[in-house]
Simulated assay, not measured.
Amino acid sequence: MQNVNVPLISFLEYLQIEKNYSKYTIVFYQKDIEDFFDFMKEEAISSINEVTHTEARMYLTRLHQKKYARKSVARKTSSLRSFYKFLLREEKVEQNPFTSVSLPKQEKRLPQFLYSEELDKLFAVSDLETPLGQRNQAILELLYATGIRISECCHIQIHDIDFQVGTILVTGKGNKQRYIPFGSFAQDAMKTYLEDGRKTLLDKQKTPNSTKHLFLNFRGGALTPRGVRLILNDMVQQACSTLHISPHMLRHTFATHMLNEGADLRVVQELLGHASLSSTQIYTHVTKEHLQKTYNQFHPRA
C-alpha cells in the first residue's frame, strides 16, 4: 500500500491553516480518514487512486455492519468526501468516489432541556463557603446565563470578562469570537469566585505560572472540558439521582428558555454562535411542543 500519510498530513494542514478549524475538529477528521485507511488495507486497496464509488459503498456497508450510528456514518462520509475533494483540487486523484454517496438521513431528535424546578435543584447543590463550591456555582451560572459550549467555557480568561458592561468575550469554533451578555446571578457567582475561591486555588500551584484562565482545577491549573463534565455530573448526582443530564443540556436549556420568553431566533443564533440559522431552528420545535402542552393543560376546550 502506498504511503497515505503524506496526503493526510497535507489535508490536516489545510484544515488548520486555510479552514481555521479547531484542533478537536481536526482530530475527528484524522481519525475518520485513518479508519478508512485501515479498511483499504483489509481490502488490499494499495492506492487512494484505486478507490471508486464501489469501494466507497463497500465501506459504508462495513460501517452499517459494525452497527455505527447514522450520525457517525454521516460524519465519516462527510470527512472522506472533504478529503477527496482536497486531493482532487491538488490533482492527487482523478475522482472523488464519495461525491455520489448519499448521506444517511439523520434522526431528528428534539434537544432535551431542563425545567425550572430541575435547575433550582442544581443551583442549590454547591457549598458556597468552599473554593470548589464557588467555582462550580460560577460554572453553572455562566453556562446557563450564556449558553456557551463547555470548550468555550474552559478557554475563557479573566480579561475576557467585562463586569461593567456585563459581557464576556467567547472564542468559538474556528476561533470565531463573539460577545455575550450575562445577568446578575452569573455576575455575582463569578465575582465571589474571583475574589475568594480562585485565589485559594491559584495558591495551590506547585510551579506558579499566573494562569489567566477563569476556571481552575483543584491543583490551580486550567480546567479542562473533561473536568467540567465531571463537575457537572457530580452536581447532578447530588441534586437528584433520577435526573440524567449532559453538560450540553444547559446550552439547550438556555436556548429553549430564551425562545419561550419571546427572544428573536436570530438573536439566539448569534448568542449560541451558530453559523447557520437552521442549527438554531430546532429549538423552535421544542418551544412549539411546550406551547402545545401548555395549551392542552390550561385551555378549557383543548
Rank of each mutant, 00 (worst) to 15 (best):
L194S: 03
R229K: 12
T52I: 05
N217F: 06
S82A: 15
Q238D: 07
N209T: 14
N5I: 12
E261H: 12
Q137G: 00
E43F: 06
H299P: 05
H64R: 12
G174N: 05
T211C: 00
N136F: 06
Q2T: 11
C153L: 15
L80F: 09
T287I: 13
L265P: 03
P111E: 01
G273D: 00
H252M: 07
S279G: 04
T287K: 11
V268P: 06
A124P: 02
Q164I: 05
Q134H: 04
H159M: 10
E50V: 02
M235S: 00
S46N: 15
Y179N: 11
N96S: 14
Y193K: 12
P111D: 01
K191I: 14
R251F: 07
I245H: 03
F11V: 13
V236Q: 14
K67W: 01
C153Y: 03
S241W: 02
K85Q: 15
L8Y: 04
L272V: 08
I180F: 07
T77N: 13
I161K: 10
E42D: 11
L259Y: 01
G197T: 02
T77S: 08
L271D: 07
N96V: 14
F163R: 05
Q238I: 02
I158W: 00
V4E: 09
H257A: 01
P300D: 09
D127F: 01
I168K: 03
L15S: 04
F98V: 04
A186N: 05
K23Y: 09
M58C: 07
T130C: 06
D120R: 10
T192Q: 13
C153N: 08
S278A: 15
I231N: 08
T99A: 13
A138Y: 12
H257I: 08
N233D: 15
L143T: 08
L169Q: 14
V228T: 06
N3V: 08
A263V: 06
T280I: 00
K31W: 06
E42Y: 04
L223I: 15
A145L: 08
F163G: 12
L214E: 08
V93F: 03
S10I: 00
Q297H: 07
T25D: 01
Y144H: 10
T77K: 04
A189M: 04
L202G: 05
H159I: 13
S102V: 10
T99Y: 04
P104F: 01
V286F: 02
F37Y: 11
I150A: 09
L114C: 07
L132S: 07
F98N: 04
E129R: 11
Y21M: 09
Q106W: 05
L259P: 00
L140T: 11
D234L: 11
Q112W: 01
T287C: 09
L110P: 02
K92D: 12
M1T: 09
I45W: 00
K66I: 04
R109F: 03
P131K: 13
Y144C: 06
G273C: 10
T171R: 13
H53I: 13
E152T: 15
F39Y: 14
E152K: 11
G133E: 11
L143R: 11
A74M: 06
E129K: 14
D188G: 05
L132H: 01
P104Y: 02
V165W: 08
Q65M: 03
Q164W: 01
L216E: 12
L272A: 09
V101G: 08
